[in-house]
Nucleic acid binder design. Sequence first.
DNA 1: TTGTATGCGTTATCAT
DNA 2: ATGATAACGCATACAA
Lengths: 336, 336
Amino acid sequence: MATIHDVAKLANVSIATVSRVTSNENNVNEKTKERVMKAMEELGYKPNSAARTLRMAQSNIIVVLMINIKNPFFAEFIRGIEDVAREAGYYLLIGSTDGEADKEKEYIDLILENRVDGVILTTAGIDVNSTIEKIHQNSPIVLAFDYIPDPDIPSISIDNESASRKITNHLISLGHRRIAHITGDMRRLQSQTRLSGYKQALYQHGIPVEESLIQEGGYQFEDGYLAAQKLLSFEKLPAAIYGGNDNVAIGALKAVQDAGLRVPEDIAVVGFDDVEMSSFTTPRLTTIHQPRFEIGKRAMEFLLKKIKQEKIDRPHIILEDHLVVRESCGEKLKGE
Amino acid sequence: MATIHDVAKLANVSIATVSRVTSNENNVNEKTKERVMKAMEELGYKPNSAARTLRMAQSNIIVVLMINIKNPFFAEFIRGIEDVAREAGYYLLIGSTDGEADKEKEYIDLILENRVDGVILTTAGIDVNSTIEKIHQNSPIVLAFDYIPDPDIPSISIDNESASRKITNHLISLGHRRIAHITGDMRRLQSQTRLSGYKQALYQHGIPVEESLIQEGGYQFEDGYLAAQKLLSFEKLPAAIYGGNDNVAIGALKAVQDAGLRVPEDIAVVGFDDVEMSSFTTPRLTTIHQPRFEIGKRAMEFLLKKIKQEKIDRPHIILEDHLVVRESCGEKLKGE
DNA sequence: TTGTATGCGTTATCAT
DNA sequence: ATGATAACGCATACAA
């Protein structure tokens, strides 16, 4: 590989001048600049990023930490991040922890080694103190899809609790009372929050919460399928099943159908997240939509500010979600 | 951050000794080693990776380049890569190009800047010469899911052509003759190869290839939906639709159903890839399964060899696929 | 077994 | 406007 010295020699200037050119400084003569550019071109010169990182103490890499990249949910979110990251000259390192402690540790090491300039965490775990705090001590961090009250940790999300109430209420307004809930991965704060919202909605309508109607799911189709099967084996069937995310809802949908029951006539099913697939199931899934792209964009904007040590006056942004009524829960309402 | 000097000072040794400890060299006294370790612990020392990269001329990062991370297809593949990458001390940088030239260029820059030690390319584009060659000149590279004859570019894949024939033949054996094909993203070599396989199967059975039955799809549900709608508006309906990947097949499935037709009674539908979702559609999708995890594993093993400059005597591995018969194409066969 | 000194390729400071 | 040079943090050749 050609180094800055090679370029300097070929262009008959010092390495300082070459550096000035690559750094887009203006105090360099137009003609020499051209000469340098030509030399760079000729040698196919690219600045060595390790040297640059060492010298400038920044890597221009930020890491996006999430539980599982399999979740199609994240694609749009990542594009939002990329959108502003690229503009600012940052690369993305996508980290999938699968909830495994050793993988998580690996990414934390990455941060400790100064390999990354910042972290976007997509949802907190329950033991917020451990992971987040560890990262927080060594690197700028922002949280997406979840909210924790710490003002030092900016967050960007919807209000999962009220959204969860909203969709549960929708089911109630349709006349259902025996509403089951299949949760998401319970290690995620998000899943807990949605569960609370579900319970609140029931309380508000004087419907008793029945523990047997709450089943732990996960983030895969299969998780929802299994949980629903359990639900369907109770003597008293649920009238509706609310999946804590679309994947488990889709699994549940299939389980209901496999049991010879119709959706929504016999049992209504709703989800949460509005992944692409939810408009391609039969029947199409009623769910909650959240602005994923926007969340990604804002998260990266926050992170940029933290990296530049700018003050953030409103560190917690809550975006609007909305209920998407489709076919899986029966009779459409007039409004939303 | 603590540097090697801080540790050296605290442990009362030279930086060389500290370096020897972190590098796991054996010629260092057990007692001083302990002293150094303790000092590192105390200071929370982590070697600066930029310095290390600069000095050793390797970053321990490899990049996995793919069209679109949204495709759930890739998750298992990536876990296969991770499995062996982690063991060897490598980090993964997942790059999603979305087929956009500027994104692709960005990742190539990454490679040119020596930021990565190697590249796993998940499928070649049609203009193989440009991208692959450009990467190949600067970095070890291996190809996954596709095959190109170049012996310098190891590849690991199934035989897309024969697999495509296989599933088309399955349709034919069920009595279908008017078989439509919705392709994958035609910028991918893979899609071209599968299309060839489809045509070959027809030829072999003396069924004329009808251009109007071949529609360009993509990699999203929506692509398949739209293409199928077009197919369904021809006066003469197809008897079966073969989607070049599961996503387009799922979209097609929905389109057929939305048109008031039954699958498989009126029109059979099959896909390719066996993504998780294909067992959760109604009806469940018949498709081709390929060993994604294994492909990931082998790809990384190849890459490791290339990085170490070891000789690879069989640079092209073709793994076995198999037909998964489910419910979307009618009457089950006895065997596979 | 341990220490000294050099260089990896940049950027930035200080001269000129 | 340009050049000489120090420093970033580490690994390693060589010396002791």
